[in-house]
Write a protein that binds this DNA or RNA. Structure first.
Lengths: 191, 191
DNA sequence: ACAGGATTAGACCGATTGGTCCAGTGTGGT
DNA sequence: ACCACACTGGACCAATCGGTCTAATCCTGT
């Protein structure tokens, strides 16, 4: 298999990010060894340190960015054509529940797993905050577009984010996506 | 310092649990080495494997149980003499916010940090679910005692738990306990 | 005083960790 | 054709990992 064929399907860099994200989600940053990531991605060590000069840390930041982008896309799809904020949230929760089940019900938040138990680096922490604020801002934006005034939109989005994080945690503890599927009802309560 | 003096103040076993809990909370199960825990607790290796025959895994389970007990006690204190569920929740959130600040604003949930990124052991996962359900049941109980009917109490408790988990996560990302302090207002919304 | 279990102390182990380094390989520009 | 560069392959490294094992020591009950 030539490199260009690889590139066409999935570059080595992408394969590293995807494999690392999978593993981090399952066992956290510190719980996964470089060797395991390399093996899962089918790449040698040289490639990792070529694409990510700072090794594991750079790779973790990249997986977090990639996963966050995926979440933003999921939000966009969910709110696309949604008549109300509630509709968008409901669709999003259902999609996330499916994702949860597909991952074997033990995956944690891909952003948190890569960043929050990483080195107690300032860069990691700031990135975590930045990505989360991005999610909140995104839902708040959709909420505004659907008629909420800015303050309400922001408060609603923030509350939804908290409920979602908590629901995911509970779903993991229970090994069941039920709570994620029922989340829209809970979030429906007025502010 | 004799052992009995140690025992009076804090047994070696307890020192191990406290030190491990501190470290796990900060960097997660996989992120902390045995040597570091031993050093923090001022104990040699022999003691660890005497008190916890299965080593790190047993220790992690013990820290989770201990931390969960602490949370239950915090709930008991918060709801003791509370006139309404809202009062209890408000006190609890303020106490947790203080705890958050004391820990340097980067500690994660002590139960989750010890169990969720540990070995993908069934024992660990079931324990995590068990402890969380205990928290939810506890708040539901207080809620019932303060007049809610059982179904409402349970739903309220579960929603509060989710909000709390999410709020803690957000507080960590923001390096600020503000969201924990404002949580009662958010939780105040009717079901 | 003494026996015997509980506890501590730490040397030691093989495996694995993240990381470095360099020789090779393939590719695109000229 | 040739060069320059991006990329790959993997040997190698010191440090650390979790864990085992055996003496020494401490404390308690008699």
């Amino acid at each position: 298999m030539s490199r260009s064929a690889h590139t066409a399907a999935q570059s080595t860099k992408d394969r590293l990010i995807h494999a690392a994200s999978d593993l981090f989600r399952r066992r956290g940053y510190a719980g996964v060894g470089i060797a395991e990531i390399l093996n899962a991605a089918g790449a040698p060590k040289g490639s990792l340190y070529h694409h990510f000069p700072n090794g594991k840390a750079d790779l973790a930041l990249a997986t977090a960015d990639w996963a966050s982008d995926g979440m933003l896309k999921l939000m966009a799809v969910s709110f696309d054509g949604a008549a109300t904020v509630d509709d968008g949230i409901t669709t999003l929760c259902h999609k996330l529940a499916k994702l949860f089940d597909k991952g074997g019900a033990w995956d944690s938040c891909p952003v948190e797993s890569a960043l929050s138990d990483g080195p107690d680096n300032i860069v990691f922490r700031e990135r975590l905050g930045h990505l989360y604020e991005g999610w909140i801002a995104e839902v708040a934006l959709y909420s505004e577009q659907l008629g909420d005034d800015p303050d309400t939109a922001r408060a609603r989005s923030e509350r939804f984010f908290m409920l979602l994080q908590g629901a995911w945690t509970l779903a993991r503890a229970r090994q069941s996506s039920d709570v994620l599927r029922h989340l829209p009802e809970i979030a429906r309560a007025p502010l």
